[in-house]
Design a protein around this nucleic acid. Structure first.
Lengths: 350, 350
DNA sequence: TGTTAGCACTCTTGCGACGAGAGTGCTAAG
DNA sequence: CTTAGCACTCTCGTCGCAAGAGTGCTAACA
């Protein structure tokens, strides 16, 4: 992203910037030249640090809350920090095994896995854990079931290769008795097993054109039912956990700021949109503060990584927190968690 | 509950108490004798009101934040108010049709119904809407499906008469191919259709004892699979919406109070327990402040009503808010919503 | 040219005082 | 039983003040 702006910085400038950001991340207080010089072992006087800080402020990496206060990082400053200043790029062995241990007990519980992942992420990060649940569109279907409810209302149940279950109510043009639904189900299953939904949709259209003559009444019906059942977008679901952690952050001591953020959390559809965009990035994504398009999200940072089932891209896991976030710890956490989830889902599907 | 304590109150005491509680509910400020006398058209002087207020305080219905402030209701005061002072016991026709209109578009969408009900409740009450999702144990089963996942892992999908879908992963002792699972599914369906899960469990045990000889290998397996699949508690799910509304309440201006409440909201299992208790009450339930057993819940009040599908008790809908809650408006809202949900679910199941 | 010490200046924060305002409790009279 | 009067209490906002932290600038130094 903004990575190559850093080439204009001298090594010492980089060190000072890193020191300030790290200090601010852990203290949440504007940091002054004096404490930088003292705490981070610089061999120069505070006055020198002050000059460097003034330069960094000119470059847009630091800001002052008011004239005679210390400096705090700007969103751009965090960006440079994340892209090229972070020191600890991975979890310790101990942390990894700790996460794995948390993982074990929930394995094989289907939906609960996602809930537990959010809990794990929020617990370790002391921020908000988030998971964009598997997108049914993309992953191979294992099985479909049709259950007649009442009148024209029927239930469609989809089971994916990764073991996720989705269902929706479909209203058909006519009343089809369960007997016939069973035959249709059988037929549909033979057609679509192992194929992801977005391909299934194409397939049904092709088949329909192909069999224009429609000698086979059952097939005709099955295709029609299939189109109804699989049409329309299958929206992803979002799991959040640890929102209460947010309230400990001093930047949200103001109840109104807090409130606007919680309103944003409740608008799941917007969150889905943001996470969907992260999904296309094909790797760990960081969105820092004002890089968020949505105004409500600008006090927040978001770190996400995609997870897979085999070759199927399923969704993302991530952490949401204030821009003043422990990037050095949370980035590897998210990365590792995504890998763990992928590994587990891949194993289970095979 | 504490209903008959009110008999010791004179009519004028009741009027004053009602006036104070209503005033406090809408203003959130301690209310003084002067404004009671003025705003609520009492024909006596503030001094007289003061005497009455002192009596009501002695009886435990009112309290003072500090010596020279107005009075605020105690939880006991609210209880009396709810049990015998509330004036407006029902929604207006306009409100009812407004709620019905909000309802229409989501009908027939299965799970989304519950989400929409929470949204509706929170929107109208400006508090937190809550729904305890259908308890699978109690409602008649329409259909069961078994899908083989991998190894010993199998997916059980239950569809209830009310159109709810539940699924869980079950690990069996042996690997059973899908072919045989299909036969088992058929057998199980013929056994359990139309029977609620808690009865199914008994039934399976009986059958097993009955067929001790076990000539029928398939039946033996089916019963065993059934026991695994339907055993264990099916925990209810909770939907919450509008938690951000809570932050507008002045009583939670203190961020720490706010936080402890949001932590409570995140502990869904405790919430399920509370709502489950409301379920046994067989009617509209109000839990006011300190009537809550759990410490974290004591700043909150809860109004719930059960909903049904035919004769099956499914779950509860409700509203959570601060003890200073618009009981007069929210009680009929919850009541009406529960009836609407029941009516809809009952119609759809037939 | 880069670094440093010194110094004046700015801005926040905490504290105590103070007065206004709201409301009570008590007493004594109607 | 009700009411007017009055002293008393407690909160809340404001103001001034001093302490503390940190900056920016200037001038001297290596």
């Amino acid at each position: 992203m903004a990575g190559d702006t850093t080439v204009v910085l001298t090594e010492r400038q980089r060190e000072v910037l890193r020191a300030i950001i790290q200090d601010y991340i852990s203290s949440a207080e504007p940091v002054g030249s004096r404490s930088v010089a003292r705490k981070y072992g610089f061999q120069v006087s505070p006055a020198t640090i002050r000059n460097i800080m003034a330069d960094l402020a000119d470059l847009g990496y630091l800001a002052q809350p008011h004239t005679s206060a210390g400096r705090i990082p700007t969103d751009l400053g965090y960006r440079v920090y994340v892209d090229s200043l972070i020191e600890r790029p991975s979890l310790t062995r101990a942390e990894e095994s700790m996460i794995e241990r948390r993982f074990r007990p929930v394995l094989g519980k289907g939906e609960d896995l996602m809930r537990e992942v959010t809990r794990l992420l929020s617990g370790f990060s002391r921020s908000v854990g988030v998971v964009l649940a598997p997108r049914v569109d993309q992953v191979a279907i294992k099985r479909v079931e049709l259950v007649h409810l009442s009148g024209e209302r029927n239930l469609v149940i989809l089971v994916t290769k990764s073991g996720q279950v989705h269902h929706r109510v479909v209203i058909l043009d006519e009343v089809i008795p369960q007997e016939e639904l069973n035959r249709i189900t059988k037929l549909l299953n033979s057609l679509i097993e192992g194929i992801p939904l977005y391909r299934v949709r194409q397939l049904l259209v092709e088949k329909m054109a192909e069999e224009k003559a429609m000698y086979d009444e059952l097939l005709r019906r099955a295709l029609k039912v299939g189109q109804r059942s699989f049409g329309g977008p299958m929206e992803g679901e979002v799991y959040l956990d640890g929102t209460a952690n947010m309230m400990q952050q001093p930047e949200f001591a103001d109840i109104d700021k807090m409130r606007s953020i919680f309103v944003a959390f409740e608008e799941k559809s917007k969150l889905v949109k943001i996470l969907d965009q992260c999904l296309t990035q094909e790797g760990l994504t960081t969105i820092i503060g004002s890089e968020n398009v949505l105004r409500e999200w600008q006090p927040l940072s978001l770190i996400t990584a995609p997870y897979w089932c085999g070759d199927d891209l399923l969704g993302t896991v991530g952490v949401i927190g204030p821009t003043r976030m422990e990037y050095g710890k949370i980035i590897p956490l998210v990365d590792f968690t995504a890998k763990l989830v992928s590994q587990y889902l891949t194993e289970e599907a095979s």
